[in-house]
């Protein structure tokens, strides 16, 4: 199932600009996450978008592409893979 969202905030600059539209696949139990994926997670009652930096024991460590302005796993720690709501498929990024 497709998920469409609009970016709010600067933490994923320069990859994703505020106001841009992103498209993802809704995550399921069969989703295979990998390091480098940009994912939409649910955290603190909000949907947030970050990049997976590390995966260990079904836990993920997330970073923003703009680390000087990002609140991410450096602040809130490792999250369960279950927090992932969608995996970005567009725009394509490297």
């Amino acid at each position: 199932m497709i998920v469409i969202r609009r970016i709010v905030g600067n933490s994923m600059l320069p990859t994703l600009r505020p106001g841009s539209i992103v498209v993802g696949w809704r995550a399921s139990a069969w989703s295979k996450l990998k390091v480098g994926d940009v994912v939409i997670i649910e955290h603190g009652g909000l949907e947030k978008i970050k990049r997976i930096s590390q995966i260990k024991d079904q836990q993920i460590f997330l970073l923003g592409d703009n680390p000087s302005e990002s609140k991410d796993s450096r602040d809130f720690g490792w999250l369960s893979e279950d927090a992932v709501r969608a995996i970005l498929i567009w725009p394509r990024y490297t």
């Binding site: 709010v8 905030g9 600059l13 923003g64």
Partner: peptide
């Protein structure tokens, strides 16, 4: 289209 937060300082 709902927002998703590139959560920052």
């Amino acid at each position: 289209i709902k927002p998703v937060y590139a959560h920052c300082d």
